[in-house]
Nucleic acid binder design. Structure first.
Lengths: 275, 275
DNA sequence: TCGTTTGGTTGACCAGGATCAAGTCGCGCC
DNA sequence: GGCGCGACTTGATCCTGGTCAACCAAACGA
């Protein structure tokens, strides 16, 4: 099954004010992709995501060393590519606002989406093994990110033990998150898969202070189906069924969870027993 | 779908000589689970896996600091549990010989196998996020491992930049390996899934110097089916079909790849086109 | 040597989800 | 407004893989 990759918009820096919601620090005002140190330090210290991100439990002086190497990227528009499979000079990215997908391309022209990434989540861990990035990361909507070139990160982490430790923590956190994907795909009932996905997204939104019952899906049905290992028609039917049962209120990509308990039951239902 | 977890054999240390094949260094001779420093240093330096493992590109003096914290575990028998979901004091493990599976338990009593791990591979990355291990690791056959308590590892990595770097590399390597699981599960044709698995295992065996065409499966059909997101009968039928087509020679758990090209074609066949 | 057990294979049948094919809706554009 | 397009929905049909059940064979113990 192939996903038609939408045409890429140019990735050139955009100048107008971004629509970030997760952070409320000063806007970048220069066309450069690297803001000056003063602005940056402030951004890490003030960032609403700092507790989820690298700065967590790092003191003021050490935080400056981190600031030295963190680059704040210009916002990426929908379809903008953060990195591609095989690209050298890998970086670690933290999503500040918006959302991305990561995917690999398969021999016959198919793709497999590996994950969706919302604010506070790391992207690019696959690039640290020394062979460049192993997947492609693309924005699902206008998104802003912080970039940490891996080479510098490694250096600074060696000098700042707290950062090293936190880096291990967040890497492990992403590793565990990734493990949820095969758990979901292992379910043989399509309904379970969707329910697991919705609950997981709901929890992640809660983690960044959003209403966990109001899901604003940034991915298309096609992308969601691909991620779930289903076809688009099945996903569409599942949404309709959940809407008919009163579990969800679905309005295009806006999904409201009306009966969290019912959704949980669907997610946990095992494959064999009572279908 | 539930996997019946086999009865655990006692995990008590066993004294007789182990059957390791990957390493040919001196056998542990004391009932203690920690061998003395002299023996250990030698083991890391001499270990056939050192290039895949943490010592890679670490010099003599630094290697000793690593040796200080690496514990060589008594071999685990089939069914022996390395760690369980939720267990505190997480460690990183490197498989020296044998093989393990990692899995999570699901609400309704089901399980999902997350991966099979052969010599040279890391197990336990899920435990570094600070909430203990998030899955259970169990030996599929008699296996020996090296253990690195994460707390000490973190300390030493802070002092040995080369180790820190190598640690990032191997973590990323395991991260990428893990990403192959959903790629495989995303295929809708059962045959593709099995073919992808067999090829991947074959490649991993090649990486540790084994014959890549002679697969000695250490997991049961049940475990394999669970990993692939299929039922045991389907897996059994697939093996029979591949045998009938002359692609494989299957004798219980010994699988010989007779037509690597045919297997590759099956693995890469996309879901839509031609069947 | 024979039961017994455990793991695996094979067959018959069925159903859930894929496929194929029409619609429908929302939205930008002229 | 009306057109056209892409994203999504819905229906009808088919087929792969799940289910249920019987069978087989290697390993083990009495």
């Amino acid at each position: 099954m192939s996903i038609p990759i939408p045409l890429r918009r140019p990735i050139a820096p955009v100048r107008e004010a971004s629509t970030d919601t997760a952070c409320d620090n000063p806007r970048v005002s220069k066309p450069s992709t690297i803001v000056n140190l003063r602005e940056l330090r402030q951004s890490c210290a003030d960032c609403a995501l700092s507790q989820l991100c690298l700065p967590a439990s790092i003191g003021g002086a050490d935080l400056e060393r981190l600031d030295d190497i963190v680059r704040q990227r210009m916002p990426l528009d929908r379809g903008g590519v953060l990195f591609r499979e095989g690209s050298a000079h890998p970086s670690l990215f933290v999503v500040r606002s918006g959302s991305l997908k990561t995917f690999v391309s398969l021999p016959e022209g198919d793709t497999q989406i590996l994950g969706f990434h919302i604010a506070g989540e790391l992207v690019g861990l696959d690039g640290l093994a020394g062979n460049g990035h192993q997947c492609t990361a693309e924005a699902l909507e206008r998104s802003s990110l912080c970039e940490v070139p891996f080479a510098s990160l490694s250096d600074v982490a060696a000098k700042v033990p707290g950062l090293q430790h936190q880096l291990f923590r967040v890497m492990s956190r992403e590793f565990v998150r990734e493990q949820q994907h095969p758990v979901m795909m292992g379910r043989k009932q399509a309904m379970s898969r969707l329910a697991i996905f919705l609950r997981s997204l709901s929890e992640r939104l809660r983690g960044i202070g959003h209403d966990p019952l109001e899901l604003n899906l940034s991915m298309s049905r096609q992308e969601l189906a691909n991620y779930l290992g289903l076809v688009i028609e099945t996903v569409s039917r599942l949404f309709s069924r959940l809407q008919a049962q009163g579990v969800l209120a679905v309005d295009r990509r806006i999904v409201r969870i009306l009966q969290p308990a019912a959704l949980a039951a669907l997610a946990e239902k095992s494959d064999d027993e009572g279908k």
